Computed example of a mutant assay.
Amino acid sequence: MAPGIVDNGDEPHSTISSEVKLTVYILDAWNEEALAHAKTLFNVIQPGDSGFSKWRQNASALLIRGSYLTADDIASCPNLMAIGKHGVGIDKIDQDACAKRGIKICNTPGANARDVAELVLALTITIARDIRSITTRQMIKPVPKETCNGLTLYKKTLGIIGMGNIGRTVAEIFRGAFDADIIAYDVFMPDNAWPHLEHKRVQDVQEVIKNADILSVHVPLTNETRDLISYKEIQSMKQNAILINAARGGIVNEADLTKALAEGHLWGAGLDCHEQEPPSFEKYGPLWGNLNVVSTPHIGAATRQAQTASAMAAVNNLYEHLMSLSN
């Protein structure tokens, strides 16, 4: 199996000839470099192309970036064998429906890990140095530096929930930049994970939450992780801790975070992921009213390098899987 492929079942598909250039339907806008590459491997049909409207009836393979694929969508695709997914998150795809059909989801873990990790660093520093508040006040009138305050990040404790590619990269950056103490939790990673990185591995997520000066979440959104960080957990965090969610909206309970911040708990929070995306002022006005909140519209992978890497990986992983069916 190619790296980054999620195996959703063992139901066999008919083999395909490696000499046949398969048709792939791309449901979303795609990186131009990766699109050109895809056209060397597949017959590509995009939105606006003749025949695209019949993708459900005809598609044996899809490439998607942000589109949702519901159980009804899957059911309406009788020929579907595989889905190439731009990025690591597959929560917009009905995984149970795919598993029942033996449809493979070829996602791209690790392709944008560095870029997301760098955004975690940017959010953390912005919050620690109170940059949003200072900048906002300065736009109204001069701000004497004596009225500004901030947190020193050197030798602070970084708590990581989720020890995958992004969590590891965040830990490496903070260890190198701030000589941070690292405390980490993950129920799936082996005990010998991160042998190159000095850290404390714990078996209770609450231990990470209670001891972190900076708490950074890097797990997928599942039934188990939804509302993982709610009011009780936020209240158990250090008074001046920083909370970062650059994973998925819904892992941090947004109403509970708004309440806790209004009560003066936490130094601040950085959110690159929200339950509503893109986030709107109508929904998040009360949260954004806290000047110690920095919110961005899921831009962790919004760099040219990351977009190219993820799109290329989705194409290549899908191709490798489809070619494996010919063996």
Rank of each mutant, 00 (worst) to 15 (best):
G89V: 04
K238R: 13
D179A: 04
N58D: 15
R201D: 09
C106F: 02
V187L: 13
L291R: 06
L261R: 13
E320H: 08
T124Y: 04
S60F: 11
I140R: 10
L261M: 06
Q206Y: 12
F42A: 01
I125D: 08
T126S: 12
D94Y: 02
Y154E: 02
C77L: 02
A302K: 03
K210P: 11
K145H: 07
A111I: 00
R248S: 03
K210D: 15
I93H: 00
N8V: 09
Y25T: 07
R129P: 04
D96W: 09
T40W: 06
G150H: 12
G268I: 01
L215T: 06
L287G: 05
A97W: 10
K238E: 03
H37F: 13
V205Y: 12
I244T: 04
V217L: 13
P144N: 04
A309C: 05
N245K: 02
D256P: 00
Q239M: 04
A180P: 09
G110I: 07
A212M: 04
I234H: 00
E207Y: 13
L123A: 03
E282P: 00
A301E: 08
T15M: 12
M189L: 13
L322S: 05
I229D: 15
R175T: 07
V187Y: 14
S230R: 03
A117C: 06
D115S: 15
D72Q: 15
L291T: 13
G250F: 04
P190I: 14
T23H: 01
E146A: 04
D179M: 09
P297A: 11
A113V: 05
A99W: 01
F281E: 14
G9F: 05
